[in-house]
Structure formats: C-alpha cells, structure tokens
Design a protein around this nucleic acid. Structure first.
Lengths: 79, 79
DNA sequence: AATATTTACACCCTTTAAGGTATAATTATA
DNA sequence: TATAATTATACCTTAAAGGGTGTAAATATT
C-alpha cells in the first residue's frame, strides 16, 4: 500500500500539532512515541499500530473509533 | 497493556458480525484477514495494525478515525 | 543571503503482530 | 444429554513496525 499524506489520521495530527504550535520533536516527547513514528504518522504511513496512534491522539483528546465511511468521506470533502 | 473485550473496536466488530449472522470464520473469509486476527480483534487485543482493522471495518462500511474522547465515552456509556 | 530550526530520508537492530495449525473449551442444536 | 458448531487458547514461523541515530532537504528567522 502507498503512503497518503492526506489520509484522515495524518491530516488530523499535522493539523492539531500545528495549532498547538509544537514541533514533531516536542510532540514525540510529550506523547512518548518515537520521533520517527510521529513523522511516519504525519506522512500517512498506511500500516501503523493502534496503540501508538492512540498514544498520540490522546494528547489531543481523541481516540481511534470505527466511523461510518460516509462520515469520513464527508470530513475529507470538507477539506 | 491488557486485553479489553469491552473496548470500542472489539464491541463494534462482535456486534456487527452477530447482527450480520456471520461466524468468525466467515468474517475472516469475507474480509481476507486471518481467523486468528478476527478473534484477537473481538477480544480486544490492545495493539493491532490499522490496515487490518480497517480491512474488517470496511466490510461494515466503517473506518478508523480520530474521535473526541467525549464521544467515545458517551458511546460506551450507552452500553 | 546566511544561519538556525524543523522536517524528511536512510541505515541497522529489536520486538512483536499476524498467520497457520492443532487442541481445548464453550455454546448451540438435535 | 450427546453431538455438532463455534469460539478460545497455545505453539511456531515470518514479515514488518518502531526506535535510535546520523545526514540531507526544506522551511523559517534574522
């Protein structure tokens, strides 16, 4: 599978991190995941482990949950 | 980390599979993920790979997306 | 434009997820 | 309650994710 910077999770993390005015290094420190992982996540690595993702999302008050595809599509359409 | 049968994803998959009247074996066949994985997923294995999870969720018209914790909590409160 | 900061890429190593299969336990059905 | 079907547990193997670090590219700052 290919990397997709525009995938929902990648976008979400990049966006939130920017809004929080953090560098990847800082996010790595705060969340406890490796710097490499933060980068791979933000660049849309297709296959990542849920607990690592959640470790990051939790920092932003979120978690991974099953969402209807229509919703996700809608979210992406909203750019 | 511990296994948690009550976690959102595990509950979701068990629930949907039951409603669709499928066995784990059938879900495994239809989605293409291993039978072992279906079981681990339904029993709340804490650390799974997103693309495998999505392979299953897609079958039910869903995907993993970052969701506000409040939402997820609310969902769980609703039992 | 020059310098500093941030992000991206490449290497190797260790850990572990996922799959297959075989067996045991649980649940449903006759 | 037997018997069949479904689900759970245990073993091993293979593939790849995640981490550390060093370097290059890109972005921001002065």
């Amino acid at each position: 599978m290919e990397w997709d910077r525009e995938n929902t999770i990648a976008q979400f993390v990049r966006d939130r991190r920017k809004k929080a005015n953090l560098t990847q290094v800082e996010l790595s420190d705060f969340t406890g995941v490796g710097l490499r992982f933060v980068r791979e996540l933000e660049q849309g690595k297709p296959n990542v482990m849920t607990d690592k993702v959640n470790q990051v999302l939790l920092f932003f008050g979120h978690t991974l949950t099953p969402t209807p595809i229509s919703d996700e599509t809608r979210r992406n359409l909203g750019k």
